[in-house]
Design a protein around this nucleic acid. Sequence first.
RNA 1: GGAGGAGUGGCCGAGCGGCUGAAGGCAACGGUUUUGAAAACCGUCGUACGGGAGACCGUACCGGGGGUUCGAAUCCCUCCUCCUCCGCCA
Length: 418
Amino acid sequence: MDRLLEVDCARIALQQQLEALATRAREGGEKIALYRNPKSDSYKRAIEGGSSKGDLADKAKEIQGDLNACKMERKELEEQEKPILEEFDSLMLLIPQPADPDVVVGKDDADNVEIRKVGTVREFDFEPKDHVQLGTDLGIVDLERGVKLGGTRNYVLKGDGALLHQAVIRLAFDMMIERSFTPMFVPVLVREEIMYGTGYFPVGRDQAYLCERDEKSLVGTAEVPLTAYRSDEILSAGELPLKMVAMSGCFRREAGAAGKDTHGLYRIHYFEKVEQVIICANDTELSKEFHQEILANSEAVMQALELPYRVVNVCSGDLGQGQVQKFDIETWMPSRKSYGETHSASRFYEFQARRLKLRYRDQNKKMRFCHTLNNTVIASPRVLIPILELNQNRDGSVSVPSALRKYMGGKELIEPKA
RNA sequence: GGAGGAGUGGCCGAGCGGCUGAAGGCAACGGUUUUGAAAACCGUCGUACGGGAGACCGUACCGGGGGUUCGAAUCCCUCCUCCUCCGCCA
């Protein structure tokens, strides 16, 4: 931070010197034009006024000398400026957004504060299986062959497993459309500048799969293409808020998580997620309201799925670089004997909009940066963990939650293939 | 992948190496006129950074980056994007 201020001062000082030189060069250049350019009015006037071409050329030559010196000076200053600008830019990309005042100060996820619990945690009157056991026995989850195909943290969903996955996605997507979000289908392989713009680069670069040959990156969430959808544009105030929803593949390297959550479908390299994004006017109260709205949307999905969950207010230490406030939804997962994160609702103020040049003109025709927010609607297969585990029966079958049945051809029970 | 063509302000569209931050049109905004509206007419109408209390002043920007030149929207190189034709392909 101190270094950034230093660099900024140096930057401005050099800029002022350069501007002074530029002015000198321009003024000199204009004079030369008068003496040299036969097309200019003043040249013609001078000739008519009795000046000889030779005189004018001499005068031009004189000025030229000064301009040559001026050019050298500029080059030198520009050389000095270059590393300073580079450092300035890269430091700027690392500057975090200060958290909202009502965020709890804390170190890590242990300091997150529970806001509410919804639904009741099921008590089993038999020994429940975990989702891996259940899925394997039912023939709907195949971890072994998933790893054969894709390496660690990969999996295959099969039969009713694949259908259940799609059912969850469809339910979530449809519920968002009912809430008047615009359904979108977006690229998942994006240019690096989009990753910088949404704040995933440079800090989270090691978490992304890069396609270096094409200088593109696979996104870890549809938040990226949705938020950047109107980047580098000037919206009209009347268009706001933009509410969008998209299902996309999500690719995550999970670097640094080696050995963590290796069991089952919890932490995996590729999954699908329905994501909601709101782009709204530059108004703190308004974006807070939308934050509650996107949180409520996702809670509605969880309630439709009859899953017990809790909402936590994420503490300062657990916030991402650009997030000013974040609420996570954590869903009860019997095999983990705890609530596991399934949703993350973030609010950014102008952080992403500044990087993305995502602006609008307000009523006073003033250019302003938008505010951006996003939340998971559903991420699968992670959410299949509580769905399978909480809906299992003594005989090893799994009841399909009623909200999903219409997406599974009316099926009510997943049973092992005889 | 190969061969051509093109990228200029919110949009369309001129643009000679200097007087071009950029004609003209549309849209928008303010005004005159009108019972109201339309039409007509007059005016305003890019962004960022720096300086100033301020009216303002300076600098940069004509897809991105680099170069030639005293001087580049204009000339050269390179990359990107779009269009047309050919090839390949869910």
